[in-house]
């Protein structure tokens, strides 16, 4: 499915944020990346669809190395990777429907998109998805009129509109209150399971990660220091990921 081989990234030469990451993601299930702030979780997720340029290493996805793609090839590969963001990243002044349809921009010509002439099946899919994420009837609302939780629902729906074969989520619940966080994670998990899309999500809420993930990857200092099922995430492991242990009690 997705395989990272010795992936490294340094924003400043000589100061690597990611050091030789090897990671393989199975064709289904939720993989949560946890770790202290500034340890490169976000950089890791963003390297996969090249929002951040990796310094070295390979990103094997569906038989090609994303790290070597450029131009049209990269755009076409990105269409198959949906992404959900911490700050939702909706186009605030566009309607919910337009935001959902923007997930199809990789497939629809710029001219048709400008005139909002999206294929009927895209519009139908968008309406169905709005139903799924609990925003039926919100199609013509402007994105900036929504609450945080509602915006993230639109964010998830937009990513799913791409018809992705992998979903990336970069701290999708960090801007939300605890209850909404759980609801959003539940939605992400349901949508991904029902469509058979694997999810790679980074989060700093360990409890939330244990509750929803099938597999947990712990990062510290730009390296993977733990990889296993949530059940094996003991206090000792958490201490090795986050350092110290006073905070555990």
């Amino acid at each position: 499915m997705l395989k990272l081989v010795r992936l490294s990234k340094s924003y400043v030469p000589g100061k690597p944020v990611l050091t030789g990451i090897d990671l393989e993601i199975a064709a289904r299930g939720i993989t949560a990346v946890i770790g202290p702030s500034g340890t490169g979780k976000s950089t890791l997720i963003r390297c996969i669809n090249r929002l951040v340029e990796p310094t070295s290493g390979a990103i094997e996805f569906e038989g090609s190395d994303l790290a070597r793609l450029s131009g049209r090839g990269l755009r076409h590969a990105r269409r198959h990777i949906g992404m959900v963001f911490q700050e939702y990243n909706l186009v605030e002044r566009l309607s919910v429907m337009e935001n959902l349809l923007s997930g199809r921009l990789g497939y629809v010509s710029a001219w048709r998109a400008w005139r909002r002439r999206f294929p009927d099946e895209d519009v139908r899919a968008a309406l169905d998805l709005l139903d799924v994420v609990g925003l039926a009837g919100f199609a013509d609302r402007r994105a900036d009129a929504l609450s945080g939780g509602q915006r993230q629902r639109v964010g998830i729906a937009r990513a799913v509109m791409q018809g992705p074969r992998l979903l990336l989520a970069d701290e999708p619940t960090s801007s939300l209150d605890p209850r909404t966080s759980v609801e959003i994670m539940q939605l992400l998990a349901d949508v991904a399971r029902s469509r058979g899309i694997p999810v790679l999500v980074n989060m700093h809420d360990v409890e939330l990660a244990k509750r929803f993930a099938d597999r947990i990857v712990g990062m510290s200092g730009g390296r993977i220091v733990f990889d296993g099922p949530p059940a094996s995430l003991t206090d000792d492991v958490l201490a090795s990921i986050y350092g110290g242990e006073d905070w555990l009690h």
Binding site: V91, E92, G106, A113
Partner: peptide, 28 residues
Amino acid sequence: QPGPIEALTAAGAPWVSRMTFGYWPQVK
């Protein structure tokens, strides 16, 4: 705002669509 543009880039939108869907609504 760079965020929405980033989202469109991640969806594989070509340059012109990033302009018309990402930038234009913001600067209109």
